[in-house]
Amino acid sequence: MSVAVAAPGARTPTDWSGVILKVYVALFLGFMFLPILLMAGAAFNANPTPSALDWRGFTTDWFTGRTDEAGRVIVRGLPQETRFLQGLKHSILIALGVIAISVPLGLAGALLLTRIGSKATGPLYTALVSPLLTPGIVLGVSTMIFWRDAFGVQAGLFTAMLAQSCFIASYCMLMFMARLQRQDRSLEEAALDLGASGFFAFRRVTLPYLTPTIVAASAIAFLQSNENYNTTFFAIGSSWTLVTEIGARMRFGVSPTINAIGVIFILLTVVFAALWAFSLRKKTA
């Protein structure tokens, strides 16, 4: 507690902790990006075992595939990997379903929780966010069991969609709640007071206010759905998505086509991030 240290002029010499922190951040960024760069690199290596080191020449065959004149496949690239393509189709189908289910559910939950000023909100809130705190494996298993035991529905795309919606709806709900809590309640009251029906007030005042969140929640739902493995693996039964297929391939025979998919994902991410940044800049300008 020496006050002398604080006196002006007595500058602390070198801020070692600051230097250490900087070095750490640099190392950390390497830790974050190195694996991804390696993975991307291997997508262009002719080596059939994914590797960025054992270089056997540049190729884009893993993206395009290669066939000889007779149409026989020489290199199995993405066009030949029909299970990946089919899986992608399943993934998108599920993701669209998840958006259609979880956005309305999340919105309904958020409206209920922010609009009833009753004591029941505590337990209800806990119940509705609990899927976020539940291991994905449990969500997948329980959904698979329930739909088979109760309705005889075999695990498949439908159950995978429901299992994902269960927790993705919670994400959506939290986003909607954050937005609704910032809304001036008197806007809705004003609409009612001016003779609007509850439905009209909701459609004309609240819904436009929520539009940006609906878009954001849909995007998050889409990403979460496509990314999910642990829940989907159990709930999807004998069908598959792009992600579970990548998982299967990682267990039973890797091929640089996985790296090719990774590169495509990276490109999509960069493009979307750039578009997003651009739209933000435009808005502020």
Partner: peptide, 10 residues
């Protein structure tokens, strides 16, 4: 018709 303290213009 009510005029709110915050005015509540849309």
């Amino acid at each position: 018709a009510l005029i709110f303290q915050t005015l509540a213009l849309f």
